[in-house]
């Protein structure tokens, strides 16, 4: 099966989950996105996108116990599935192929 196609935001999300490390929690993912990509994301967008990635089989999660600060409500810890990693890799390859040979044209203008 060919790797799934990833939209730009989906790529960013998967990368953020990977960066946060194994068992990433959604708020940490949001913080990572904001810190690194400068993308402040509404929680509605965040969770529905995570759900979509889960539907595509690129993410999975398991339940972790809640803490007092969250009134004991459970947490979901996300991990990127092997299919997710493959999709990311494919996206990167496509981008790299597209970039190839354009470095001269797209290099930062000198001031």
């Amino acid at each position: 099966m060919p790797p799934a196609y990833l939209g730009e935001f989906e790529q960013l999300l998967l990368l953020a989950v990977l960066r946060v490390g194994s068992d990433a929690f959604a708020p940490d993912v949001a913080r990572e996105l904001e810190a690194r990509a400068g993308r402040s994301v509404s929680r509605g967008h965040l969770y529905t996108s995570l759900d979509r990635l889960e539907d595509k089989g690129l993410l999975r999660w398991k339940v972790a116990a809640g803490t007092a600060v969250r009134d004991g409500l459970p947490r979901r810890a996300y991990t990127v599935t092997p299919a997710g990693v493959a999709a990311l890799r494919a996206s990167r390859d496509v981008l790299q192929r597209m970039w190839h040979g354009l470095d001269g044209l797209l290099k930062e203008p000198s001031r």
Binding site: A26, P27, R43, R70, D71, P74
Partner: peptide, 11 residues
């Protein structure tokens, strides 16, 4: 699913 989101928001 819903509980976890609510918990995240609370936190």
């Amino acid at each position: 699913r819903g509980d976890a989101i609510r918990g995240d928001l609370l936190e």
